[in-house]
Nucleic acid binder design. Structure first.
Lengths: 340, 340
DNA sequence: ATGAAAGCGCTAACAA
DNA sequence: TTGTTAGCGCTTTCAT
């Protein structure tokens, strides 16, 4: 077994002191060129790399950011992760990814675990449970410890930090408007996320838009049980003479399309469908789903940028150091074949 | 700003030495109960947590494993990640996730970056490019440095390490067999991954199975360009009178279903379809896709277990320390509505 | 131009 | 029972 080579060993082999070697590696001007060359040569030979742990301990910087996701099997979060990863790695940061699986307990556990010097900052979307319980001390502690935090998508007003959110309300307004403009009179809103902040906003937008148009009605179908989602949607479509569907999450929309197909409705002729999250399901449904793109990758990249920005300004003692901001990612409606 | 509290500060405040505090925190029997209590009390008060970096530097263990994925927007890898994460966190390990985006260069970069003491071991699936280039020195270096590596799914025989693979050949044999048993005579194999190890194996299995049945033919459609995949598949279905499709990846199967629908074929009556990877697309296609489940989460969990096993046996100097093993994850055919 | 020494926060062998 | 010391690998100030 080859032990990893350290400065100490290089120094010994070169008959130099550790500090000289260290400086040489950084091409410090106070070291002679000759020594610098010798050092580099041996370092290359051994493929020397500084021990990241030691550097971090010394510098109090890990170049790592902690990312907490409620879910990973959800395409939206996977895309956000991708965006974060791209931006972070571009700037020499690594990311440690934790999946809270919608659990409050896990969320707290992860935050505490990583907070003790494993990461320089956090990017996080609240777990479902955390959002319902509304217990946020673990995040407020971060603030107290002066550890930068960027929340995205599922955020809380009670936590003062940088945020990146999607303009959910406006997005669903636009979506519903499109349904109405293309002739829908009886629009259904279907989803499993009515009780999440984003779900509420989307519902609100839909209601608002409908209320602005005479002769258009809105029906809401909150799915209680994800196991029976499909059946619920099928029955719902059969029993209500709807001509438009807005699925607040991608799955709901995909299922709506399939059930409408199954029941023999023509899409978009008889029923139009719009979904949220422009993921694989939307691209590969039949017909292809018109969908609200939240530009998840951009969102992730933006969140990472905000965090990196904070991290590089830690020495900034001016007032704006503490002024947090909230960026809103614009959505866009991607027109495909499930609407007229 | 509250600085994070250290042993030193606790010691000072308690008028004890650092080591006494350290030992007290571990309830060391050589410390008086009284002192232990005092220490714990103050530690709790300050919510003291040991600095993970320092502990790691000292112990030469980071309790972190590096996971390198070729892609994250692919449901299979997302599920594997989930499995790894579950298993790792259950054992007090964190994971740092890197996405190579199918690039050889990124793969090398990540491995080198993490190898310098950021992680205790690696779990990795080769990037497409790495697999094509067949340059594996970065992984062989790991072996040389005695850093445990577990490869999964896209593996290489040239690297001697623990592996977890899917029984791809057998899986596609079974799938094709099912198509044949349910009446298919002309089976198409469609995919974008013909040149990956797993793609080759799957193709091999299909060929083998077909060759065992008289009167059954196989047609292969390797998609060259992912941009035109849909069109290629549509034209292909139109021009060949196939009655069965095996999609070697989930997307290909989903598209095949949609195009068959579009062309007016009845599924599964006229055309049967089977896909790989039991992901969202398979569950939410219409009709629902019969699919080969690779049990991605189990696979991830298994890979994590193998790695953790290695990590806990580092002191094991016996010969079997160096004996690597390959576990094969059994697949199963999930029967749904796209086959008879 | 080079080296000695202190220190990041922690652990553990050894001393008192 | 408690404390001293050395050391993990590195950086950096301050000698030399």
């Amino acid at each position: 077994m080859r032990k990893k080579v350290t400065l100490k060993q290089l120094a010994k082999e070169l008959n130099l002191s550790i500090s000289t070697v260290s400086k040489s590696l950084k091409n410090d001007s106070e070291i002679s060129q000759k020594t610098i060359n010798r050092v580099h040569e041996l370092a290359n030979f051994y493929n020397y790399k500084p021990n990241a742990l030691a550097v971090s301990l010394k510098s109090n910087k890990t170049n790592t950011i902690g990312v907490l996701l409620p879910e990973i099997l959800n395409h939206f979060y996977a895309k956000v992760l991708f965006g974060i990863e791209q931006e972070a790695s571009k700037n020499g940061y690594k990311i440690v990814t934790c999946i809270t699986n919608e659990s409050y307990e896990k969320e707290v556990e992860y935050v505490e675990m990583l907070n003790y010097s494993s990461v320089d900052g956090f990017i996080l979307a609240l777990s479902k449970e955390t959002q319902m319980l509304n217990k946020l001390d673990h995040l407020k502690d971060l603030k107290r410890d002066n550890v930068p935090l960027v929340m995205f998508d599922r955020v809380s007003e009670e936590v003062d930090c940088d945020k990146v959110i999607v303009d959910d309300k406006h997005a669903s307004k636009t979506a519903v408007q499109h349904l109405i403009m293309t002739g829908c009179k009886k629009v259904a809103v279907i989803s499993t996320i009515f009780d999440l902040s984003v779900g509420k906003l989307r519902l609100e937008g839909a209601r608002e838009e409908v209320s602005m148009h005479d002769g258009v009605t809105l029906i809401e179908l909150p799915i209680k049980n994800i196991e029976t989602e499909e059946k619920e949607i099928e029955v719902f479509i059969k029993n209500n003479e709807i001509d438009g569907v807005l699925g607040l999450d991608e799955t709901a929309a995909a299922i709506a399309i399939n059930m409408a197909n199954k029941l023999g409705y023509k899409i978009p002729k008889e029923i139009s469908v719009i979904g949220f999250t422009d993921g694989l399901l939307s691209k590969h449904s039949y017909p292809k789903l018109t969908t609200v793109s939240q530009h998840a990758e951009d969102l992730g990249a933006k969140a990472a940028k905000m965090l990196l920005d904070r991290l590089s300004n830690t020495s900034d003692t001016s007032e704006n150091k503490y002024k947090t901001s909230t960026e809103i990612v614009k959505t866009s409606l991607i027109l495909r074949d499930s609407t007229n």
